[in-house]
Amino acid sequence: MTAAAPTPSLAPVSRRSPVLVQLGGLYGLWLREVKRAVRDRGQLVGGFSRPILWVLILGIGLNPYFRGEVYGEVTFVVPFTYLQFIFPAVVALNIMYTSVQSAISVIWDREFGFLREVLVSPLSRSTVLLGKVLGGATVAMAHGSLVLVLARFADVPLTWGTVAKALGVMAMLALALTSLGIVIANRIRSFEGFGVFSNAVILPLYFTSSSIFPLDPALTRAQTRVVYPDWLVTLVEYNPLTYAVDTLRGVLIHYNQFDPRLGLLIMAVAGIVLFTIALLDFRRA
């Protein structure tokens, strides 16, 4: 097969500086995650219905029972309603679902070859991973913000300042959780559904994070262990999510069970450690 005389080599692609290439690629990968999320009906439905169920149905339904009364005697008084109490936790729940869900798409990227396309590009592995994490975290934050829209139904007054602070905490949470999701996804070879994750990772973390019931704030630590079984208190105290939710709760309804800085520290450390693990996995793969 002889080809006709070729036109001389095309003007080569102008050489962008390597940093600019990485940034451009990062933007491209981030944009891809966001576009995919917007087109994913299933995920959107979950993002809307979850807060509505938890806040409007469960929250309003349980609201009247959230009293510290035992046989007419008030054991402790909390300065908020159940609806207010659960509200920040539902924000965290929505972030958690969406983060892990975005991260799990790594499995599909891997199995259906898209990952390969990126791995033969001039992007470094860390750029590829960062694009995925930032994209997933952005989508997760958007889903978390959907919950904030329900604030008025939960009697949570929002000022711009509060929202800004809450978004900051949400971003840290989303980044850490997306990294967690990717670490898990990297270790999974055969995958047949997201349900396993929601039941084995998300819900257990959520239920033991002091999200839907407070560890009685008026009691001392010793007394708490009398009211609640020991194992439960231990679980709650060892669950890192407890502290993240607590920090967010402090921002939104000004109630903390722990030092709010503890939550920030845990999220930052967990985020960095998990991202590093994910990167190491990724380099090896």
């Binding site: 290439v21 690629g25 491209g28 990968l29 891809r32 070859g113 590009s121 001039p122």
Partner: peptide, 20 residues
């Protein structure tokens, strides 16, 4: 190795971005 949720043009555009 295409992203099947993106359009044809978006796939090409992403590739262009990724290759600078």
């Amino acid at each position: 190795s295409l992203d099947d949720r993106l359009t044809v043009r978006e796939n090409l555009d992403l590739h262009g971005l990724v290759f600078g």
